[in-house]
Amino acid sequence: MALLDLKVNGQEVRVEAPDTALLLDVLRERLFLTGAKRGCETSHCGCCTVRVDGMAVHGCVVLAARCQGKAITTVEGCGDGMELDRLQRLFLEHGAVQCGYCGPGMLMAAKALLERNPQPTLDEVKKGLDGNLCRCTGYTPIFDAILAYSRGE
């Protein structure tokens, strides 16, 4: 076991976890941040997407120990807990969420994309979300919400 010093959504936390614990397991099982979802666990579906130092990563294939000293952001870090942030609101308005399981990962991947490229084309949005699967919406409402965000809506 190891003691890990992590910074999650701006807060410093110390957790005990196995040496090679995965970030997703630490977030969900030790810190009870269940926004990042457990899906395929083989880095295909993207519903465990979180951000580490701004980059979108799949939490199921990241060693938690490697995230020490880096800024981890999960969907719980969006908004203030009471109010949704602008991108979350646009996801809601565009019907970008149906069953909702992919939502937290989609939001984190979208935020990483928009930070890197504030005015993405539709193709760039698609490429930016290429690590995230959605089986409900057909993606179009998700792309619409992200493009609306980039237009300042």
């Binding site: 980059m55 979108a56 990563v57 979300l129 690590g131």
Partner: peptide, 9 residues
């Protein structure tokens, strides 16, 4: 190579 998240790491 694969997806954005995988290319990141």
């Amino acid at each position: 190579v694969s997806s954005t998240a995988v290319r990141n790491l």
